[in-house]
Amino acid sequence: MVEFWNSYLLPTVIILAQILAIVVPMLIAMAYLTLYERKVMGAMQLRKGPNVVGLFGMLQPFADGAKLFFKETIIPTGANKFLFLLAPMITFFLALIAWAVIPFDDGWVLADINVGILYLFAISSLGVYGIIISGWASNSRYPFLGALRSAAQMVSYEVSIGFVIITVLLCVGSLNLSEIVRAQSGDLGILNWYFIPLFPMFIIFFVSILAETNRHPFDLPESEAELVAGYQTEYSSMAFALFFLGEYMNMILMCALCTILFLGGWLPPVDIAPFNWIPGVIWFGIKVAALLFVFIWVRATLPRYRYDQLMRLGWKVFLPISLFWVVVTAGFLVAFDMVPA
């Protein structure tokens, strides 16, 4: 019995506690991301944003959540009930399980697996299923059109994301996310981070994650002027809330990935006091928040792309450039004998 407790139950309890320690702060972060977005957009449009519920509107996300929770769930009569309810759950769970491999600080990671980056790539490529299943199961025109657009869009931009990841991996020599961050440490601090030597890839990666998360200016799957709300049209109450949570969680996830690949993860920009007194997890949060600010900034600034322009950008611009850059990076590393062991 004691052996059973030590070898099975105790590890299970510890893992569950770790999972909760990641998921609960993530959900709160996601709730405050919606407030952050509304406040930043308000400031950019010379408005105040939400400021009534709680101090500075701090309780607004919870008021919104409570409102959605008490709404009635409506399932269209022609819908495939099982898949209709499964789709938002897929979106939400995929957005959560990806956090298992993200290193928040040196050693602060739930599963430090060898193929961490491939795991993240696999999870993000699955995100399309929540959308395409919801579009089909709703049995309605607008959601279906939105789902088809989204499927094509996410598959297209995944290709260039893959090549960008390969470029970074060539420089690191490991698929482990913690190793990727450690490879960017050094005496030069911020100058060691990969966004400087791989600057074009950083830009391509950032634009591609905008498309991958269906955000402006690539939010064609839910463009309200043409498709009502795209794949979410028929959803209400908690089913809608799960889509919403999943989408925002994916934004944070992609920004975290960008931070790990290009902005040195938990590393401080300059490795001297007082910068290295601040814990790594705070630096990680600051970098992710800065990238999220750019997400919102883009949303407040740019008009939406047309669909053919979106496809052109993905296949005819990003794919050749990122493929070319893989060859350039590999050639450079071999020519100067800098290939990591």
Binding site: V115, F121, A122, S125, L126, Y129, I132, L148, A151, V155
Partner: peptide, 23 residues
């Protein structure tokens, strides 16, 4: 490695196209 590649290639790309066509 093979497990992740199976998910990326077959589930993430090939099956999406299947689903696309069948729908």
């Amino acid at each position: 490695f093979i497990a992740m590649i199976l998910v990326v290639v077959y589930v993430g790309a090939v099956a999406v196209l299947f689903l696309f066509v069948v729908m």
